[in-house]
């Protein structure tokens, strides 16, 4: 399932996939795969993404 929340949060932070990837030390492809729902990140990576985007785990990864 696509992670539209993460894509929206990244856009709101005015970051490209490449810029976010650079901040948290992963590849752009990994960010793309998470947003497309092709890859389930570990909790550590989820936390790094949340910190980089200034959000919480619930905001980005909790399914309504």
């Amino acid at each position: 399932m696509k992670n539209t929340k993460m894509r929206a949060a990244r856009a709101a932070a005015d970051l490209t996939q490449e810029a976010l990837a650079e901040r948290i030390g992963v590849t752009r492809q990994t960010i793309g795969a998470i947003e497309k729902g092709d890859y389930n990140p570990t909790i550590q990576l989820c936390l790094r993404i949340c910190k980089a985007l200034g959000t919480t785990l619930d905001d980005l990864f909790w399914e309504d």
């Binding site: 030390g25 992963v26 590849t27 492809q29 990994t30 795969a33 890859y39 990140p41 570990t42 550590q44 990576l45």
Partner: peptide, 10 residues
């Protein structure tokens, strides 16, 4: 140039 692998690649 970063050449380490991230968790998805590993």
């Amino acid at each position: 140039m970063r050449q380490t692998f991230d968790e998805r690649q590993q």
